[in-house]
Design a protein around this nucleic acid. Sequence first.
DNA 1: CTTGGCTAGTTTC
DNA 2: TGAAACTAG
Length: 426
Amino acid sequence: MAAGNVDFRTCNYTTARDPRVILLEDMDQFEVQVFEAYHQRGFPRVVVNYAGLITAVSYEAKKLGINRDATPRAQDALKICRNLILIQQPQDADIKLKEASYKIRLAVDSVLQSLNPPPVFQYSSPDESYIDITAYIDSMEERYGYDNLVHQDLKYWENCSQEVRLIYGSLIGARIIKKILQATNYQSSIGIGCNKSIAKIGSALHKPGSITILAPTGLQQFAEFVKIEGISGLGGKLGDVIKHKFGVETMLDLQNVRHVRLAKTVTFNGNWIGYEKATVILNKAYGLCDDEVVPIKYASTATVSHQFYGHTFTRTQYMTEILELYVDKMLERLHFEKRNHNRTPTTLKFSIFLTNRNNIHAKLENVMWHEINNKGKMIDSFGYDNTSIIPQYWDKNAQVDKVQIVAKFADNPTQVYAVSAFSFMF
DNA sequence: CTTGGCTAGTTTC
DNA sequence: TGAAACTAG
């Protein structure tokens, strides 16, 4: 039973108890751990991609005020700390991260499979997963009885079976963290709560290397310290609009926003977010969330993309360049999916995102169509045919989607560049 | 002044 | 469903 429809206007949510025990396992400074040279540990470091942008920040560097918002570029960060260690992303960074992610999942899985019944595992991102151990905790209580199960030291909590359940969850959390460390030498943190939203908030509170339990009874006490953007789903535009429109800053403030007014908040392409979504958001402000942990082992689509500076794609030769550049990257990804997930794609989609910063987009777009709308030709050129290297990874019923072209325009154009992407769908 | 950048994935219309 | 908008790190 989840929280259900709670009337958030009258809700004292210490009474609206969700019996679930949900963990969010989150890797600490994931990219830094994966790419760091061993001897550099303990120093301020950042991971930098090929374009000089920071993709991950070590905790030592975070303490100095380096982060992806304030100092998006390595050169900005170096101004703050001359001795900052720059860890260059390798060419196949995405694959290396996915390999690491896969090892982590195996480690987590080995712990989960030792439990009866096995918890529900939901892949959320390469460094994050949700785990629902409610059924396991239930069965523990059934097997041993609450009184026998609860350690003497915990018994001073009267009527706090929910808290005790969460604490038992932390024992599983500790095993997971330990197993990940053994298997990969990577550190991670875990948040534990009665729903996904709370577990997620908790996981970030005491990084690195910690387990944080957030009991609903204590949530109200620190709701005023949780920023709106710290709530999952409110870290972007939506959160910004809400903060601006209602003058709210924290989770606590958000509780006082009127449902009707929130529903009529405009976002997504100029539309109201609507009553349903407003309910979900307000519930989250109260620490309530009905989202279930669903069994997902990995993402349902796969994308490889790249940004080509200075390329306008106005010439055929550029298309050839792109395709040649991509073949290795695509094959690597297909290998990975076959090897680790035993799946082959059925659909390929090719997208190009143009940012034309010199106001010649109409012409460009026109040429683009002529260059790549002939998809047969394009696909042939990287070998999608009988003699191809690709088909061994392809589903028999594979169909190639039509070419998608998206033109995107910047407000303050100074340079022409383009992004292209291949997506595989399974 | 001189860019907000990059990549990967999901949600929404 | 395709295309665009969105989130996230």
